[in-house]
């Protein structure tokens, strides 16, 4: 069996080379499943439950895209990727899209030849300290020992921040978030720094969360979003407008509860266009007319997904902040469906 798989793979290599020229959407449809790259586990964003079903805020984006294509939010193959393998997995075609809280940066977009289709979470790097340290601002951290994950943008941001404020610090390099939690709790470092969402999730697991505070300063911009390969703009459009549909749905008040009601027809032409009762937006994407209906129905609109996975009623307890709709003073904004 093992040998046949190997040799069989070599044999079909030639055929596959020809087939790969077709569009990503055709490949996905032929396969019957969307291959979506996620993290190997990040609280609130992607994690398998006891039955092996993936859940989380990033996972929900994958499910929405799958629902838009197939009408079935479970038609996804989740492929866990690490920080080291994620970009090759996407570039080589192992996954069709990445929804793996990846920061949109210039080099990733331009040099690595990826296309970020939007932003589903505005994050930023913050600091957490024990209350007993008596610090209320990151500017007072001169001389602190800082637990920092190696090989990430957070490491560089930290160096920039301390240098521009003429402060010194002593880094305690760590490899994973779990290690950081243990080191921080054991007092090996005064400060733990990572993305603010990660800090909130970490703090929620402490035995006495009240003994630790997250400082108000956010020292970097970390816009996280799904991304696809260069070279297939139609596919990029599909993922982009699926995300936009979730965002617009919240803005227009389409929820998973009232969507069936609204689908019967409304006075709002944009809602009608999104839900496919008016116009032919789905057809333009190469999908059925009810693509956005399925995507929103899969897990709810953007706001519902936020509340369910990382919102204030979850243990992570993130407030909307920058991730509120533009009308509520946030940055979440979708171009019009027209």
């Amino acid at each position: 069996m093992k040998k046949t798989v190997f040799l069989g793979a070599l044999a079909v290599t030639g055929l596959a080379a020809g087939a790969a020229a077709a569009g990503t959407l055709d490949d996905v449809k032929a396969r019957g499943k969307l291959n979506c790259g996620v993290t190997t586990g990040l609280v609130g964003f992607a994690a398998p439950d006891a039955n092996g079903v993936w859940e989380g805020f990033d996972v929900a984006v994958c499910r929405a895209v799958a629902a838009a294509i197939f009408g079935d939010p479970t038609a996804v193959e989740f492929i866990p990727t690490t920080g080291k393998t994620r970009f090759t997995a996407l570039a080589s075609g192992e996954v069709d899209m990445l929804a793996r809280n990846t920061t949109w940066t210039f080099t990733r977009d331009v040099d690595l030849k990826f296309e970020f289709v939007g932003i589903n979470y505005y994050d930023g790097q913050g600091f957490m300290v024990p209350k007993s340290l008596g610090v209320s601002s990151a500017k007072e951290l001169d001389g602190a020992t800082v637990c920092i994950q190696t090989g990430t943008t957070t490491e560089l941001n930290l160096a920039d921040f301390f240098r521009s404020n003429n402060m010194s610090y002593e880094p305690v390099p760590i490899e994973t978030n779990a290690e950081a939690q243990q080191q921080f709790l054991a007092g090996a470092c005064d400060v733990y720094t990572t993305d603010a969402s990660g800090l909130a999730a970490t703090r929620a697991t402490f035995e006495n969360p009240g003994d630790y505070v997250i400082l108000p300063e956010i020292i970097s911009k970390e816009p996280l979003g799904p991304l696809v390969r260069h070279g297939d703009n139609a596919w990029g459009d599909l993922v982009r407008w699926t995300l936009n549909a979730l965002i617009s749905a919240e803005e227009l008040g389409i929820t998973s509860a009232n969507i069936d009601e609204l689908r019967k027809g409304t006075n709002n032409p944009e809602i009608n266009r999104i839900l496919g009762t008016e116009g032919n937006l789905g057809e333009m994407l190469g999908l059925s007319a009810d693509w956005a209906y399925n995507a929103i129905k899969a897990g709810g609109n953007y706001g519902e997904l936020f509340e369910k996975n990382i919102g204030e009623n979850t243990p992570i307890g993130l407030s909307r902040g920058l991730n509120a709709q533009w009308k509520d003073g946030g940055l979440i904004y979708s171009p019009p469906f027209r």
């Binding site: 609280v43 439950d49 779990a178 970490t202």
Partner: peptide, 24 residues
């Protein structure tokens, strides 16, 4: 390290659940 879910990889994934985050 290459994203396969061996027992150690699964321990990361299990910790990524809100219920079990913090278990080491």
């Amino acid at each position: 390290i290459i994203g396969l879910m061996d027992p150690l990889g699964l321990s990361t994934a299990i910790r990524a659940n809100q219920e079990w985050n913090g278990i080491v």
